[in-house]
Structures are given as C-alpha cells and as structure tokens.
Design a protein around this nucleic acid. Structure first.
Lengths: 146, 146
DNA sequence: TTGGTTGCAAAACGTTTGCATGTGC
DNA sequence: GCACATGCAAACGTTTTGCAACCAA
C-alpha cells in the first residue's frame, strides 16, 4: 500500500518529479481521508520520520492544487486552509461546530442546480465549494452549551 | 435613504451604540449589495469622506457578525474574508473566475439536502456556505485564454 | 549535467490586540 | 460620568519568497 513510489505515475502526469516528500505527503493525505491543514500534514510527516520543512509542505501543496491533484478549501470562520486529495468521487463535508470533527458525505446535491444556473444565467459552472456546519449526532444534545 | 441614523434601530436590537462609523459601514454594505473585503469597505468609506481606521472596520465587522447582522465568508482560493449584510432572503453567489465579478442568486438548492443529512446522519445543520465558481455569460467564450 | 526541489530564515499579508483617547447614551 | 467605541502601532499566525544547497532524471 505504501511503497515510496506509489504516486510516481500520478506525479508524472503533472510533469512533477517523484520525490520522497511528495510521495509521503500524498500518502499522508490519502491515509487521512479527511482535509488537513498544512501544519497537520507537517506534523504527521514528522511522526512518520519524514524530515520536511513547513515551507516545503506549502510549496508541494500549491503545486498539487495547481495540477488539480489536491483541493484547497477554507472555512468561513477559520484562518487555516484545508487540503485533501481530489478524489474521483465528488463529496462534501459536515463540520461539527462543537467537537470540530469533520464527516465526509458522498454525493452532491448541486448537480441539478448547476444546470439551472447554466439555463437561467448562462453561467458555466466549473466547480463549487460547499461547507455545511452544525451539530453532529454526539453533540446535538449540547446545543445550549457555550 | 441614507440618513446617518438609518441603522439605529438595527444596532439597538444588538445592544450596540449607533455611531457614525457603524452606520456608514452598514450603509456601504447595503449599497454594495455584494460581499466586500474589510479593505474594500475601508476604501469605500474613505471615498465617502468617512475617516476610519482599518482596525475599526475589522472590529465593527466582528461585532456585526457576532450579532448576526453580517455574514462572513471566505473563498477557497482567496485569503481575504468577505462580508455582506445578512439579508432575510437566503441567497448565494456565482464567482466568475475570469472577470472576478460576483453574481448574487436568490434561493438555495440545499433545503432538501439538509433534511436528508438530518435523517441519514443525525446531523443538525445550523448553516452552510456555498461558493459556485465558473465563467459568467460574458466570459464563457474565453475559457481557453490563460 | 541540469533544471526542478528543498531548507532556512526572513518577509509579506490579513487580522487581532493593548492602550490611551474620544464619544454616545 | 461611565461604559463602550475608536485610532494608532505593535503583535500575531498563516502563508509566501529569496537564495543557496540538493537531488531526480
């Protein structure tokens, strides 16, 4: 599952060299399955004994976002950007405002909507970000708490 | 339309003093009709000969967001937060990736979806952000351009 | 060998904060 | 008068960048 060249072909697709750092970062993103901040990636790589600098994390992420391999998003409230692998299956996340946990949800409610925007406004949709927040099952009884 | 106390009642609702700066900022947001950054607000206020400091703009915005009078959002790509009046009518925006113009769209495609999330995951939705990007009618013929 | 990749430190950027002054109520 | 609002400058946290060393192809 985690050979050091697991992502060689993917990187080649983007004319990117297959380096230890890029492979490890992609592997970490894949293992996470959820969006991570640059710093979280940096720390997880350290735990894996991958010596890397934070600026390299940012540079790799920027490169991968440019190539479309990684999706960057940002919560309305938060200051840190989140990064996740750009999977084939389009999906979204539920952000619990209490426990901060993130829940992935397959599928997307916007397909019809995008067609409607094209028909009504002549707007050609190339992408969207949807961020849903609220209380997860475990936290919903604590809505009153500070 | 633009008396200096136009927003006195609104501010009173939030136990906030009716000051020249708050009224002018709210008026500017209303006149814009579209989300603005803190700096854009700062500049528009200057154009109106309202002497204000940028930190006051941030402080007023923070206060108004806390009270629910203003909505803060953030594009996935951008680093600057956007602020707009919290209108009664829920709506979203289309962001043209070429000309950077923002188009408001009344209504929301997510009502049914939120019910589905509650039913299937027990997730109690309290809000969402939807950011749609693509090419507006004028720009859609230039999709190939850099 | 050569151009892309990385580390380090410093800069840049948007945003927040401490403190003294000013102002609405 | 008093509590809240504001200006200024300095601090903050995240992200970017300049430059020299490094390494994949």
């Amino acid at each position: 599952m985690s050979g050091k060249d697991t992502y060689k072909d993917l990187l080649k697709t983007g004319n990117l060299k297959s380096t230890k750092h890029r492979n490890a970062l992609l592997e970490t993103l894949e293992q996470s399955g959820l969006p991570l901040t640059a710093e979280e990636l940096f720390l997880r790589l350290k735990e894996k004994n991958v010596s890397i600098s934070l600026s390299t994390v940012y540079r790799i992420l920027e490169t991968l976002v440019d190539k479309g391999f990684v999706i960057r998003s940002q919560l309305a409230t938060g200051n840190k950007a989140l990064y996740e692998l750009s999977h084939k299956d389009h999906h979204h996340h539920l952000h619990c405002v209490r426990c901060r946990q993130i829940f992935p949800v397959d599928g997307c409610p916007l397909e019809d909507y995008e067609q409607l925007l094209a028909d009504r406004f002549g707007f050609t949709v190339t992408g969207h970000n949807l961020e849903v927040f609220g209380y997860c099952e475990k936290c919903k009884d604590h809505k009153q708490d500070g």
